[in-house]
Computed example of a mutant assay.
Amino acid sequence: MKKKVLAVIVVLGIIAGSVWGNSYFNHSKTQDVYSGTIEGTEIPVQPELGGKVIDLKVEEGQMIKAGDVIAKLDDSQAKISLQTAQSQQTQAQAKLDDLLGGTRAEELRRLESVLAQANDNVAALAPSLQLAQNNLANDQQLYKSGALSKQALDTQQNQYDTIKAQYDAAQANVNAAQASLDQAQAGYTQPTIQAQKAAVDIAAQSVKAAELNLSKLTITSPANGQVLYKEVEQGQVVNPGTTLITVLNPNDLWIKIYVPEAKLNKVKIGGTVGIAVDSYPNKTFKGQIQYISTQAEFTPKDVQTKEERTTTVYAVKISITQGKDQLKAGMPADVTLD
Protein backbone atom coordinates (compact mmCIF):
# COMPACT_ATOMS: atom_id res chain seq x y z
CA MET A 1 0.00 0.00 0.00
CA LYS A 2 2.82 2.35 0.94
CA LYS A 3 4.50 1.56 -2.38
CA LYS A 4 1.34 2.48 -4.28
CA VAL A 5 1.02 5.76 -2.40
CA LEU A 6 4.67 6.51 -3.05
CA ALA A 7 4.21 5.74 -6.72
CA VAL A 8 1.21 8.07 -6.89
CA ILE A 9 3.18 10.81 -5.19
CA VAL A 10 6.06 10.37 -7.64
CA VAL A 11 3.68 10.48 -10.60
CA LEU A 12 1.96 13.57 -9.25
CA GLY A 13 5.37 15.16 -8.72
CA ILE A 14 6.40 14.43 -12.26
CA ILE A 15 3.14 15.86 -13.58
CA ALA A 16 3.49 18.95 -11.40
CA GLY A 17 7.08 19.39 -12.51
CA SER A 18 6.07 19.02 -16.10
CA VAL A 19 3.27 21.54 -15.73
CA TRP A 20 5.59 23.98 -13.96
CA GLY A 21 8.29 23.45 -16.55
CA ASN A 22 5.91 24.05 -19.42
CA SER A 23 4.49 27.08 -17.67
CA TYR A 24 7.94 28.44 -17.01
CA PHE A 25 9.08 27.73 -20.56
CA ASN A 26 6.03 29.35 -22.11
CA HIS A 27 6.34 32.29 -19.78
CA SER A 28 9.98 32.74 -20.74
CA LYS A 29 9.09 32.38 -24.37
CA THR A 30 6.37 34.99 -24.24
CA GLN A 31 8.85 37.41 -22.78
CA ASP A 32 10.70 37.30 -26.12
CA VAL A 33 7.59 37.75 -28.26
CA TYR A 34 6.63 41.32 -29.05
CA SER A 35 3.61 42.66 -30.86
CA GLY A 36 3.61 45.27 -33.57
CA THR A 37 1.97 46.27 -36.82
CA ILE A 38 3.50 45.78 -40.24
CA GLU A 39 4.10 49.13 -41.86
CA GLY A 40 5.31 50.22 -45.28
CA THR A 41 7.34 53.23 -46.30
CA GLU A 42 5.01 55.96 -47.54
CA ILE A 43 6.41 58.35 -50.14
CA PRO A 44 4.66 61.70 -50.64
CA VAL A 45 4.87 62.90 -54.24
CA GLN A 46 5.25 66.68 -54.27
CA PRO A 47 5.95 69.11 -57.14
CA GLU A 48 8.86 71.54 -56.91
CA LEU A 49 6.82 74.20 -58.73
CA GLY A 50 3.24 75.31 -58.29
CA GLY A 51 0.45 75.54 -60.84
CA LYS A 52 -2.88 74.23 -61.99
CA VAL A 53 -3.32 70.45 -62.22
CA ILE A 54 -4.43 69.94 -65.82
CA ASP A 55 -4.09 66.14 -65.85
CA LEU A 56 -4.18 63.61 -62.99
CA LYS A 57 -3.49 60.12 -64.25
CA VAL A 58 -3.74 57.85 -61.18
CA GLU A 59 -6.38 56.55 -58.77
CA GLU A 60 -6.13 55.22 -55.23
CA GLY A 61 -5.12 51.57 -55.12
CA GLN A 62 -3.44 51.70 -58.53
CA MET A 63 -0.02 50.05 -58.90
CA ILE A 64 2.56 52.31 -60.53
CA LYS A 65 6.21 52.10 -61.52
CA ALA A 66 9.09 54.50 -61.01
CA GLY A 67 9.01 57.09 -63.79
CA ASP A 68 5.29 56.74 -64.54
CA VAL A 69 3.60 60.09 -65.15
CA ILE A 70 1.36 60.91 -62.22
CA ALA A 71 0.19 64.40 -63.07
CA LYS A 72 0.83 67.39 -65.31
CA LEU A 73 0.70 71.04 -64.26
CA ASP A 74 -0.12 73.92 -66.60
CA ASP A 75 3.07 74.59 -68.60
CA SER A 76 1.98 77.40 -70.95
CA GLN A 77 4.01 80.09 -69.16
CA ALA A 78 7.03 77.79 -68.87
CA LYS A 79 6.95 77.18 -72.63
CA ILE A 80 6.92 80.93 -73.30
CA SER A 81 9.90 81.40 -70.98
CA LEU A 82 11.77 78.66 -72.83
CA GLN A 83 11.06 80.20 -76.23
CA THR A 84 12.25 83.60 -74.98
CA ALA A 85 15.47 82.12 -73.64
CA GLN A 86 16.10 80.27 -76.90
CA SER A 87 15.62 83.49 -78.90
CA GLN A 88 18.08 85.35 -76.68
CA GLN A 89 20.59 82.55 -77.12
CA THR A 90 20.24 82.72 -80.91
CA GLN A 91 20.79 86.50 -80.90
CA ALA A 92 23.82 86.26 -78.63
CA GLN A 93 25.38 83.55 -80.79
CA ALA A 94 24.75 85.55 -83.98
CA LYS A 95 26.51 88.58 -82.49
CA LEU A 96 29.46 86.45 -81.44
CA ASP A 97 29.69 84.98 -84.95
CA ASP A 98 29.86 88.52 -86.33
CA LEU A 99 32.65 89.44 -83.92
CA LEU A 100 34.66 86.35 -84.77
CA GLY A 101 34.08 86.77 -88.50
CA GLY A 102 35.27 90.37 -88.55
CA THR A 103 33.53 93.44 -89.97
CA ARG A 104 31.72 92.96 -93.26
CA ALA A 105 32.59 95.17 -96.24
CA GLU A 106 29.16 96.82 -96.26
CA GLU A 107 29.59 97.80 -92.61
CA LEU A 108 32.93 99.45 -93.43
CA ARG A 109 31.32 101.39 -96.28
CA ARG A 110 28.55 102.53 -93.96
CA LEU A 111 31.02 103.79 -91.35
CA GLU A 112 33.05 105.59 -94.03
CA SER A 113 29.87 107.28 -95.22
CA VAL A 114 29.03 108.38 -91.66
CA LEU A 115 32.53 109.85 -91.26
CA ALA A 116 32.29 111.67 -94.57
CA GLN A 117 28.95 113.22 -93.63
CA ALA A 118 30.32 114.30 -90.27
CA ASN A 119 33.29 115.99 -91.97
CA ASP A 120 30.94 117.74 -94.41
CA ASN A 121 28.94 119.12 -91.48
CA VAL A 122 32.10 120.49 -89.89
CA ALA A 123 33.20 122.01 -93.18
CA ALA A 124 29.79 123.63 -93.67
CA LEU A 125 29.85 125.21 -90.21
CA ALA A 126 33.45 126.42 -90.40
CA PRO A 127 32.75 129.60 -92.51
CA SER A 128 29.80 130.56 -90.30
CA LEU A 129 31.92 130.11 -87.21
CA GLN A 130 34.74 132.21 -88.66
CA LEU A 131 32.32 134.97 -89.64
CA ALA A 132 30.69 134.98 -86.21
CA GLN A 133 34.12 135.12 -84.58
CA ASN A 134 35.17 138.11 -86.74
CA ASN A 135 31.91 139.95 -86.06
CA LEU A 136 32.28 139.39 -82.34
CA ALA A 137 35.85 140.78 -82.42
CA ASN A 138 34.70 143.92 -84.28
CA ASP A 139 31.77 144.47 -81.93
CA GLN A 140 34.06 144.15 -78.94
CA GLN A 141 36.25 146.96 -80.33
CA LEU A 142 33.20 149.12 -81.01
CA TYR A 143 31.91 148.49 -77.49
CA LYS A 144 35.25 149.54 -76.02
CA SER A 145 35.15 152.78 -77.99
CA GLY A 146 31.60 153.45 -76.89
CA ALA A 147 30.16 153.10 -80.36
CA LEU A 148 28.14 149.91 -79.51
CA SER A 149 25.73 149.17 -76.69
CA LYS A 150 26.19 146.31 -74.23
CA GLN A 151 22.96 144.72 -75.43
CA ALA A 152 24.18 144.59 -79.04
CA LEU A 153 27.46 143.06 -77.91
CA ASP A 154 25.62 140.40 -75.91
CA THR A 155 23.49 139.54 -78.93
CA GLN A 156 26.58 139.02 -81.05
CA GLN A 157 28.18 136.95 -78.28
CA ASN A 158 25.12 134.67 -78.16
CA GLN A 159 25.23 134.17 -81.93
CA TYR A 160 28.87 133.18 -81.74
CA ASP A 161 28.29 130.78 -78.81
CA THR A 162 25.44 129.05 -80.65
CA ILE A 163 27.47 128.50 -83.83
CA LYS A 164 30.50 127.42 -81.77
CA ALA A 165 28.40 124.81 -79.95
CA GLN A 166 27.10 123.48 -83.26
CA TYR A 167 30.61 123.29 -84.62
CA ASP A 168 31.95 121.49 -81.53
CA ALA A 169 29.11 118.95 -81.72
CA ALA A 170 29.83 118.33 -85.39
CA GLN A 171 33.51 117.86 -84.60
CA ALA A 172 32.63 115.39 -81.82
CA ASN A 173 30.60 113.41 -84.36
CA VAL A 174 33.63 113.33 -86.64
CA ASN A 175 35.79 111.98 -83.82
CA ALA A 176 33.23 109.29 -82.92
CA ALA A 177 32.76 108.23 -86.54
CA GLN A 178 36.52 108.05 -87.02
CA ALA A 179 36.92 105.90 -83.88
CA SER A 180 34.19 103.49 -85.06
CA LEU A 181 35.80 103.19 -88.46
CA ASP A 182 39.25 102.62 -86.95
CA GLN A 183 37.89 99.86 -84.69
CA ALA A 184 36.06 98.19 -87.57
CA GLN A 185 39.16 98.26 -89.75
CA ALA A 186 41.34 96.87 -86.96
CA GLY A 187 38.85 94.21 -85.91
CA TYR A 188 37.22 93.71 -82.51
CA THR A 189 39.44 93.43 -79.46
CA GLN A 190 39.75 90.25 -77.38
CA PRO A 191 37.94 91.75 -74.35
CA THR A 192 34.95 92.51 -76.59
CA ILE A 193 34.92 88.98 -77.97
CA GLN A 194 35.32 87.41 -74.51
CA ALA A 195 32.47 89.52 -73.16
CA GLN A 196 30.21 88.29 -75.96
CA LYS A 197 31.24 84.68 -75.36
CA ALA A 198 30.20 85.14 -71.72
CA ALA A 199 26.85 86.51 -72.93
CA VAL A 200 26.38 83.37 -75.06
CA ASP A 201 27.15 81.13 -72.06
CA ILE A 202 24.66 83.02 -69.89
CA ALA A 203 21.99 82.66 -72.58
CA ALA A 204 22.68 78.91 -72.81
CA GLN A 205 22.31 78.52 -69.04
CA SER A 206 19.01 80.41 -69.21
CA VAL A 207 17.77 77.91 -71.79
CA LYS A 208 18.77 74.98 -69.56
CA ALA A 209 17.01 76.55 -66.58
CA ALA A 210 13.85 77.09 -68.65
CA GLU A 211 13.96 73.49 -69.89
CA LEU A 212 14.38 72.23 -66.33
CA ASN A 213 11.42 74.27 -65.07
CA LEU A 214 9.30 72.94 -67.93
CA SER A 215 10.24 69.34 -67.12
CA LYS A 216 9.33 69.85 -63.44
CA LEU A 217 5.70 70.46 -64.43
CA THR A 218 5.39 66.81 -65.46
CA ILE A 219 5.26 64.88 -62.17
CA THR A 220 6.50 61.28 -62.17
CA SER A 221 6.55 58.52 -59.57
CA PRO A 222 9.83 58.28 -57.61
CA ALA A 223 9.43 54.54 -56.94
CA ASN A 224 7.46 51.39 -57.69
CA GLY A 225 4.46 51.07 -55.43
CA GLN A 226 0.75 51.49 -54.84
CA VAL A 227 -1.19 54.75 -54.75
CA LEU A 228 -2.27 54.89 -51.13
CA TYR A 229 -3.92 58.33 -51.09
CA LYS A 230 -4.87 60.85 -53.75
CA GLU A 231 -4.68 64.27 -52.14
CA VAL A 232 -5.76 66.60 -55.00
CA GLU A 233 -8.15 66.66 -57.93
CA GLN A 234 -7.75 67.71 -61.54
CA GLY A 235 -8.24 71.46 -61.98
CA GLN A 236 -6.94 72.29 -58.52
CA VAL A 237 -4.20 74.92 -58.15
CA VAL A 238 -1.37 73.67 -55.96
CA ASN A 239 1.65 75.28 -54.34
CA PRO A 240 5.22 73.96 -54.44
CA GLY A 241 5.57 71.11 -51.96
CA THR A 242 1.87 70.20 -51.95
CA THR A 243 1.37 66.43 -51.69
CA LEU A 244 -0.38 65.21 -54.83
CA ILE A 245 -0.47 61.51 -53.96
CA THR A 246 1.10 59.17 -51.40
CA VAL A 247 2.81 56.05 -52.72
CA LEU A 248 3.22 52.95 -50.55
CA ASN A 249 6.41 51.02 -51.24
CA PRO A 250 5.39 47.33 -50.76
CA ASN A 251 9.01 46.21 -50.94
CA ASP A 252 10.00 48.18 -47.87
CA LEU A 253 7.94 46.57 -45.10
CA TRP A 254 8.96 46.89 -41.46
CA ILE A 255 7.74 46.52 -37.87
CA LYS A 256 8.54 48.58 -34.80
CA ILE A 257 8.57 46.79 -31.44
CA TYR A 258 9.49 47.92 -27.93
CA VAL A 259 12.01 45.81 -26.01
CA PRO A 260 12.55 46.13 -22.23
CA GLU A 261 16.02 47.14 -21.15
CA ALA A 262 16.60 43.76 -19.52
CA LYS A 263 16.13 42.04 -22.90
CA LEU A 264 18.42 44.30 -24.92
CA ASN A 265 21.20 41.71 -24.67
CA LYS A 266 19.20 39.63 -27.18
CA VAL A 267 18.96 42.46 -29.67
CA LYS A 268 21.69 43.54 -32.06
CA ILE A 269 21.85 45.29 -35.42
CA GLY A 270 21.67 42.71 -38.21
CA GLY A 271 20.17 40.05 -35.97
CA THR A 272 17.37 37.88 -37.34
CA VAL A 273 13.87 37.51 -35.91
CA GLY A 274 10.78 35.42 -36.61
CA ILE A 275 7.55 37.09 -37.66
CA ALA A 276 4.11 35.51 -37.33
CA VAL A 277 0.75 36.84 -38.53
CA ASP A 278 -2.79 35.57 -38.11
CA SER A 279 -3.27 35.19 -41.86
CA TYR A 280 -0.60 32.48 -41.99
CA PRO A 281 -0.91 30.68 -38.60
CA ASN A 282 1.51 27.85 -39.42
CA LYS A 283 4.21 29.94 -41.03
CA THR A 284 7.02 32.10 -39.70
CA PHE A 285 8.65 34.80 -41.81
CA LYS A 286 12.12 36.21 -41.33
CA GLY A 287 13.12 39.75 -40.49
CA GLN A 288 16.31 41.61 -39.70
CA ILE A 289 16.94 44.16 -36.95
CA GLN A 290 17.67 47.41 -38.70
CA TYR A 291 17.68 50.02 -35.94
CA ILE A 292 17.80 50.18 -32.15
CA SER A 293 16.90 53.41 -30.41
CA THR A 294 19.66 54.99 -28.34
CA GLN A 295 17.16 56.57 -25.95
CA ALA A 296 14.85 54.82 -23.53
CA GLU A 297 11.15 55.61 -23.39
CA PHE A 298 8.01 54.37 -21.73
CA THR A 299 6.04 51.69 -23.53
CA PRO A 300 3.36 53.29 -25.78
CA LYS A 301 -0.14 52.96 -24.34
CA ASP A 302 -1.46 51.00 -27.30
CA VAL A 303 1.20 48.28 -27.10
CA GLN A 304 1.19 46.67 -23.64
CA THR A 305 -1.01 46.29 -20.57
CA LYS A 306 -1.55 49.06 -18.07
CA GLU A 307 1.09 47.65 -15.73
CA GLU A 308 3.66 47.33 -18.50
CA ARG A 309 3.07 50.87 -19.71
CA THR A 310 5.42 52.09 -17.01
CA THR A 311 8.23 49.80 -18.25
CA THR A 312 11.32 51.46 -19.70
CA VAL A 313 11.79 50.15 -23.24
CA TYR A 314 13.79 50.79 -26.41
CA ALA A 315 12.26 51.06 -29.86
CA VAL A 316 13.55 48.46 -32.31
CA LYS A 317 12.86 48.66 -36.05
CA ILE A 318 12.79 45.36 -37.94
CA SER A 319 13.00 45.12 -41.72
CA ILE A 320 10.97 42.27 -43.22
CA THR A 321 13.22 40.16 -45.44
CA GLN A 322 10.91 37.27 -46.29
CA GLY A 323 7.31 36.99 -47.47
CA LYS A 324 6.93 40.50 -48.92
CA ASP A 325 4.50 39.09 -51.47
CA GLN A 326 2.32 37.70 -48.66
CA LEU A 327 2.64 40.21 -45.85
CA LYS A 328 0.80 43.51 -46.16
CA ALA A 329 1.00 46.86 -44.43
CA GLY A 330 -1.49 47.08 -41.58
CA MET A 331 -1.30 43.42 -40.52
CA PRO A 332 -0.76 42.86 -36.77
CA ALA A 333 2.28 40.66 -36.19
CA ASP A 334 4.20 38.94 -33.42
CA VAL A 335 7.99 39.16 -33.44
CA THR A 336 10.11 36.46 -31.77
CA LEU A 337 13.73 37.25 -31.05
CA ASP A 338 16.09 34.43 -32.06
Rank of each mutant, 00 (worst) to 15 (best):
N22H: 09
Y24T: 14
Q86V: 06
G21L: 06
D168Q: 14
N158H: 03
T284A: 08
I202H: 01
S81G: 09
S221Q: 09
E211Q: 15
A223M: 11
K4P: 03
A16C: 11
V267D: 03
Q178Y: 10
N135Y: 05
G40T: 07
M331G: 08
I219A: 07
A199R: 00
D338T: 11
M63F: 06
Y34I: 03
E233W: 03
S206A: 15
Q326M: 10
I202W: 00
N175H: 11
S293L: 08
Q83H: 05
Q159V: 05
L228V: 05
S81L: 08
A195V: 00
A105Y: 07
I163E: 00
K4R: 13
A137I: 09
V19P: 01
T336R: 05
V237R: 11
T189N: 03
T30I: 02
V200C: 03
G13D: 07
A296L: 08
A199M: 01
V114A: 15
V8A: 15
T272G: 01
N138K: 09
L125R: 03
G102A: 08
P240Q: 12
A147P: 01
S180T: 13
T41Q: 12
A169C: 02
Q234H: 05
Y24I: 05
Q304C: 02
Q304R: 07
Q140I: 02
D168W: 01
T336N: 05
A78K: 00
Q166H: 06
S145F: 01
S180E: 15
T37V: 15
K301H: 09
A124D: 07
Q194W: 00
V232P: 04
D154Q: 10
K57V: 11
S279N: 12
Q88Y: 02
Q86N: 08
G101A: 12
V303Q: 05
E307D: 13
Y34K: 01
A165G: 11
D32K: 05
A172Y: 12
K95F: 04
Q185D: 03
M1A: 14
N158C: 00
K4E: 15
